[in-house]
């Protein structure tokens, strides 16, 4: 700033030093700690190097994380799930592989005991469809909270022949001698939001008029 040096012409060097000292004393009394008011020449970017280390490490960390996400995801994302029709079409290639399949459950899901490899589990059997293709699904474990006919699901599992012991033929299913042995279920919720009819539910809970199916 020009006025910093302006009074320099009027005073001797020692006098100026005294003023500076006085300014410093005063400044240290009430100025915020972080601001150095020493009236020296400001040399921009003189303090640079040490300041850079931590941010650079941070930057590298973020880039590494970004790389991890891309590597972790892109493989999956390229083929996150097969639709039911694709899974049926490519059954030969998919046999023995673990993959995801998408479809919409229909009919009444049946809770059942499943015996697989001599182990007894509880699960649910139901058919799913997509673009006219139907797959019989036997899901081991509890279904997702929002699982219900009409809401699409993405299931992870394998193609298996026949049906596991203890599971009855699936009503309205494909019945083609295959089933999809699923162990993970994700609900693919659609983008429609409809008001719930709270009154009707309350009535049902109170044992009043039951909602019609």
């Amino acid at each position: 700033m020009s006025d910093v040096g302006a009074d320099g012409s009027r005073s001797s060097r020692i006098a100026r030093a005294k003023i500076d000292e006085a300014l410093l004393d005063d400044a240290s009394a009430d100025a915020p700690k972080s601001l150095d008011l020493t009236p020296t020449e400001v040399v921009p970017s003189a303090k640079g190097k040490t300041r850079r280390t931590l941010p650079t490490v941070l930057l590298l960390g973020v880039m590494a994380l970004l790389g991890f996400v891309l590597v972790r995801s892109l493989g999956d994302a390229a083929l996150f799930f097969y639709n039911a029709d694709e899974a049926v079409e490519q059954r030969d290639e998919l046999e023995g592989r673990r993959f995801r399949v998408q479809g919409t459950p229909f009919g009444e899901p049946v809770t059942t005991e499943i015996e697989r490899d001599g182990k007894l589990d509880v699960g649910v059997a139901f058919p799913i469809k997509f673009e006219g293709s139907i797959i019989d699904v036997v899901h081991t474990g509890n279904p997702a909270e929002l699982f219900q006919p009409g809401v699409p699901v993405v299931l992870e599992g394998t193609w298996s022949r026949g049906l596991p012991t203890g599971v009855d033929p699936i009503l309205g299913g494909a019945g083609d001698g295959w089933h999809f042995a699923s162990s993970d279920m994700v609900v693919k919720h659609d983008n429609e939001y409809r008001d719930d009819n709270r009154e009707r539910l309350d009535e049902a809970n109170l044992g009043g008029i039951a909602p019609e199916a």
């Binding site: 700033m1 006025d3 910093v4 006098a15 300014l23 008011l37 009236p39 400001v42």
Partner: peptide
Amino acid sequence: VDAAIAERRASAHAGLDEAISHPALEKEGS
């Protein structure tokens, strides 16, 4: 930074301008 210094010079220590031209200081400086 520069502005803060200038501001301080101008406002907080206006009295020092007088001191700068004080004969005693001039003498000490020389």
